[in-house]
Design a protein around this nucleic acid. Structure first.
Ligand SMILES: [Zn+2]
Ligand SMILES: [Zn+2]
Ligand SMILES: [Zn+2]
Ligand SMILES: [Zn+2]
Lengths: 156, 156
DNA sequence: TAACAATCGTTATGATATAACAGACTATTC
DNA sequence: GAATAGTCTGTTATATCATAACGATTGTTA
């Protein structure tokens, strides 16, 4: 429950340490952290909110890093596959992970007013979802847990 | 946790009682349960799985009930708004509710092999999601909880 | 029946996502 | 360091999902 949540924080550190962590992870695991992939992650870390694939593509296009949808989608596929970025199903959008490298099961809180998104953690097979799955004999492989509502600021 | 789940059941009763319940609800609440809306709900009850909007539209088209996307989407909007049908975000698809008329917070289990979907219930502000939201000061208005994996049959 | 609101049919378009293939780059092996 | 296998990129084209807009029709209410 160490939600960075909606709290203020030193955002420049988010970017630097996020990139550094992923860079180290990729070296350890023989993954290619190519310019497009790095730039997409940087964009998501900088924005610190959920971005659609075409929004990301706009940035890439401006910078001459690629102009067609597959360029953005392929980079996102890589980043999502390795857990550096999460897809927010409810928004058809992507957001940088706040715990890269750690195996984890995220929960998202999405503010409908200011569009900010906070990532928190949960245990996959515990809680109500786990109970329900055990009762039904269902084998969980992946979960989507997203809450929509109002962040602390927007409740005021 | 009264998940109809993946268990066998008298499916003809699903359809009849589902339609009857919704019909009564609409009369009570002065809602128009029009032919297209009724037919879309029937299709979803009959199929007993998640269908995309264009799949539903194909049925409507065959039956002369409408041939353009807005016809299907409008009926689905109505049915979702009033809780007779749920949208499965992970699949961009729709499924008939197993508890129409009751206010409830569903959880879905989606089998990646046979594409069946089971609906179960949970309490919105309890469990891990509730904890996380309280800790972050987040006000939940709606939740998306979907588990992907293997149903009992497909684990064999 | 008149006024008003809700619904429908249709056209057009927007938004999101992937298939397919050729060429470039990277890593590995010899 | 050349051959080769695997991965990544750039591009075209297309598939899939969803909504805006508007006039015609139907239902509700007074
Ligand atoms: Zn994460
Ligand atoms: Zn907010
Ligand atoms: Zn339901
Ligand atoms: Zn199955």
């Amino acid at each position: 429950m160490d939600s960075i949540g909606f709290a203020k924080h030193d955002h420049s550190r988010c970017i630097g340490s996020g990139i550094a962590t992923v860079e180290a992870y990729c070296q350890d695991h023989r993954l290619q952290f190519t310019p497009v992939r790095r730039r997409v992650l940087e964009i998501l870390l900088q924005q610190h909110r959920a971005l659609g694939a075409y929004e990301i593509l706009d940035y890439l296009r401006e910078e001459g890093l690629g102009s067609q949808p597959p360029v953005a989608y392929r980079a996102l596929d890589f980043l999502v596959k390795h857990g550096f970025v999460h897809r927010i199903e409810r928004l058809n959008a992507f957001i940088a992970c706040m715990h890269p490298g750690e195996t984890h099961t995220p929960v998202f809180m999405i503010c409908r007013k200011c569009a900010s998104v906070a990532e928190a953690q949960r245990e996959p097979m515990q809680g109500q979802l786990g109970e329900v799955a055990r009762a039904a004999g269902f084998l969980i492989e992946r979960t989507v847990v997203e809450a929509e509502g109002l962040c602390p600021k927007c409740q005021a």
